[in-house]
């Protein structure tokens, strides 16, 4: 069983392996959060419009 310290050290390549995984994670999270934010915004706008229409009646 590998210990946690040598896992983090990545055989001396920690400075390349971890930033690679970190960058991938940040970019995927960013694209996901951007997408779901936009969807929530349009959901809310549609909801407001519907309420407005119902109150007009």
């Amino acid at each position: 069983m590998m210990d946690f310290g040598s896992f983090l050290a990545m055989g001396g390549y920690a400075a390349y392996v971890w930033p690679a995984y970190g960058a991938a994670l940040v970019i995927l999270l960013a694209i996901w959060i951007d997408g779901s934010r936009r969807r929530r915004a349009v959901d809310q706008a549609l909801h407001r419009l519907e309420q407005q229409r119902n109150s007009e009646r």
């Binding site: 995927l28 996901w32 779901s36 936009r38 969807r39 349009v42 549609l46």
Partner: peptide, 26 residues
């Protein structure tokens, strides 16, 4: 991931089109 992210965005774009139409109608 790509499938989920693209479906989410397609949903958003379709709902945005619906919102534009409804605003125009209003």
């Amino acid at each position: 991931f790509m499938l989920a992210a693209v479906i989410e965005r397609m949903r958003t774009l379709l709902l945005e089109a619906r919102l534009r139409n409804q605003r125009l109608a209003a």
